[in-house]
Design a protein around this nucleic acid. Structure first.
Lengths: 199, 199
DNA sequence: CAGAATACTAAACGAGCGTTCAGCTCCTGT
DNA sequence: ACAGGAGCTGAACGCTCGTTTAGTATTCTG
């Protein structure tokens, strides 16, 4: 499928660094056919964007059950990134493509981010209602903070792999990362179990 | 200066999206001179990378005094991003360029990230020695987590501005953001001041 | 003041880009 | 059987890119 090869190449190199001829070669067709089918390279990019967004939406609705407040589970940390990755084959181009969408100033990226933010807000609200977390003085910012922390692992994956010596999105990496995140979310950075003065 | 115009344009649009002719026009010279001066566009990019890295290093060494453990200060949060931004004019292209360096797979970006990670590790160690934080079960990962949280605001700045309605790197945005971050770092997400069971 | 280096430019080159075009299969409906 | 359209292609077009070249001012040096 032309679209899937485009998705793969776009995810790996970025749309601007991939030529129509490369996509055509990867899909085993001519460059002219790619354009004939989608109208233009830009239109193909929009089709891929839309496809990724749809797939993500499907995963999200499928996960809203499983994603329910088991925040303090060792397996499911309330990390959306972790949950999404578990639903994808290890060689899927989706994470890299989603990463690009989040970092690029496109309409689709904006939509994706807003969606994730809504999930984050919903999770915090549910957690709060269950008495497992406080919404904080500024719930929107707290939800954004939790979301940003979660996404950071995806955005900085390669860099973190370099300095930690382990891919934070691998099995082992996620376990180590989640342990620290949960510890901080449970007790903060405090050295003791007692919370000292905070004024 | 040609280099400064290149820095500005690279930061705004990314090196690949900026042509030598654009840089030349912005600097008020011919395209040929740009190449003659730096050898090639790629070499110019390396000069800019090096310049940014040097500037960042200078800021870092200047800040290591001021950056000392005043983590729980309302002004200086232990946020490196915040501290760097305070040392820069509001229209500086540096933050955007640093953001690109962190997100791109270049040697300079790798170096930059390693440097920031070292600072983060150092800060956590200092905080720990001062009894203000625990190094956690996995100090490297904890330092990486704190760093990632900090950087996320820079990486997702535009997106967060969209959903929050306020630039998280503006005066007001930083205050709101820092308040929540400090609250979580101090007490975790717990709804009460008492830490419940955590097993 | 001569002469060489330096700063700089306009013009052109070759390559790669997205896209267009004319035409070639090859399946389908009548 | 055979028109007709869909699927598909190689070649070409116009454009922009980074870079090269040949040459002109300008400035430094003896």
């Amino acid at each position: 499928m032309i679209r899937d090869e485009a998705l793969r190449l776009f995810a790996e190199h970025g749309p601007d660094a991939v030529s129509v001829r490369q996509i055509a070669a990867a899909a085993g067709v001519s460059a002219a056919l790619v354009v004939h089918h989608f109208g233009s390279k830009e239109a193909l990019r929009e089709v891929v964007d839309h496809h990724v967004l749809e797939t993500f939406d499907a995963m999200l609705t499928e996960m809203t059950g499983e994603q329910a407040p088991d925040l303090y589970d060792p397996a499911a940390t309330g990390s959306l990134v972790e949950a999404v990755l578990r639903h994808l084959p290890p060689d899927s181009p989706m994470p890299a493509y989603l990463r690009r969408m989040l970092l690029t100033d496109s309409e689709a990226g904006k939509e994706l981010f807003a969606k994730i933010f809504a999930v984050s807000e919903g999770m915090l609200a549910a957690l709060s209602e269950a008495g497992m977390a406080a919404p904080g003085a500024d719930p929107a910012v707290r939800a954004a903070f939790l979301m940003a922390n979660d996404l950071a692992v995806l955005l900085l994956r390669d860099r973190l792999t370099e300095v930690l010596g382990v891919d934070p999105l691998s099995q082992e990496g996620m376990a180590r990362w989640a342990a620290e995140v949960l510890a901080v979310y449970a007790r903060g950075l405090s050295p003791s179990l007692e919370v000292g003065d905070a004024s």
